[in-house]
Simulated scan of single mutants.
Amino acid sequence: MLAAAPLLWPLVARGQAAGRPARIGFLYPGVVSVTPTRIAALREGMAAVNYVNADRVEVVVKASEGDPAKLPSLATGLVDSKVDTILAISPSAVAAAKAATTTLPIVANDLESDPIRSGFVASLARPGGNITGVFSDFPDFGMKWLELLKEALPALSHAMVFWDPATGPTQLAAVKAASELLKVRISVVEVPAIAELQHAFSKADELNPEAVVILSSPIFGTNPKLIAELALAHRIPIATLFSEIARAGGLLSYGPNLLGTFQQTGTMVGKILQGAQPADLPVERPTKFELVINARTAKALGLSLPAAVLLRADDVVE
């Protein structure tokens, strides 16, 4: 089947040439209400590679609303509905799409996985199958988050870490290594579902850390407002990968520009719809990174942020 796949993918481009608008399956692990900005960025990426019908493309959104158990059936539904390609966001969505089809092109937007170790691609330069995309598994983020918290809270000695076990051990191992170097004790709380977030913050009240590090996971990245509100309600400074959480009321974030990753995947989708084969499209890494500091939240928490931290920020929320 894999051998036959390269012969089938160019038919997608020929279908577009015949005038039929493309149909893109958008397999999303979060809430559907936040998808419009991501879809707009996807269209921008498609237009950037001269895909002339970027504004006419039909995006078929299937969102699991925070329940990863729904993703396999949603992926199968997209395949059955005969979309031209699937954009899968998060490791669980990529795995669900991979299980649903070995021929339909899949473009990943996965900020947690090592794509080779996860079995999604054969190599970064030549993925080899029907999957390519934007992947980020930078373990040095763990060090960066703790360093920033240490600068913002010089007396930091105990931090809690929220970890989604479904994302694997790489991030957690990196934060543990960073905590030893920075001499910060950490307590790990597993958060396998959105429903567990309230419990996690209540656990923080119980253990009384000076700050919380929220590791990368679709559970967290797709619920920025909820997490920011919980952090403010429990009066806990948080550091995370996701800028939307910081802008919504979290203390700080450092990581890839989220909408930038959707633009990148948009360029890859555009190339595939014009006849490129996923097997030959190299895996990409995020290209835009940003540090966001919420000065308003710092003031609400009674923190005085050092000028050195504020000057390095790409965006300071006043």
Rank of each mutant, 00 (worst) to 15 (best):
P165Y: 03
G221K: 04
D137G: 11
A300N: 11
A108L: 07
R56V: 04
K150V: 12
A178D: 05
N130R: 12
P115Q: 05
R56E: 13
L149V: 09
A100Y: 05
A193Q: 08
A308V: 10
W163M: 02
A248D: 02
A313H: 07
H199D: 14
K271D: 11
P282C: 08
E318L: 12
V49M: 08
T267N: 07
E58V: 15
V283N: 04
N223V: 01
V213I: 14
L273W: 06
M46K: 13
V269E: 03
P165H: 03
G142Y: 05
L303D: 03
D55E: 15
D140W: 09
V191E: 02
S113I: 02
V52C: 11
D110L: 11
I106G: 02
D205P: 06
L172H: 05
P139K: 06
V57L: 04
S81H: 09
E58T: 15
I186K: 08
D137K: 09
A93Y: 01
G66K: 00
P209G: 04
F262D: 06
A97L: 09
F289E: 03
S216R: 10
A48F: 12
Q264R: 11
F262W: 13
T101W: 05
P165K: 04
L124F: 13
S157Q: 14
A177L: 14
D67T: 01
E229Q: 13
L301D: 02
I131A: 06
W163N: 10
V213M: 07
Y51C: 05
Q263I: 11
G255Q: 11
R185M: 09
T297V: 13
D315N: 14
D84P: 10
P6Y: 06
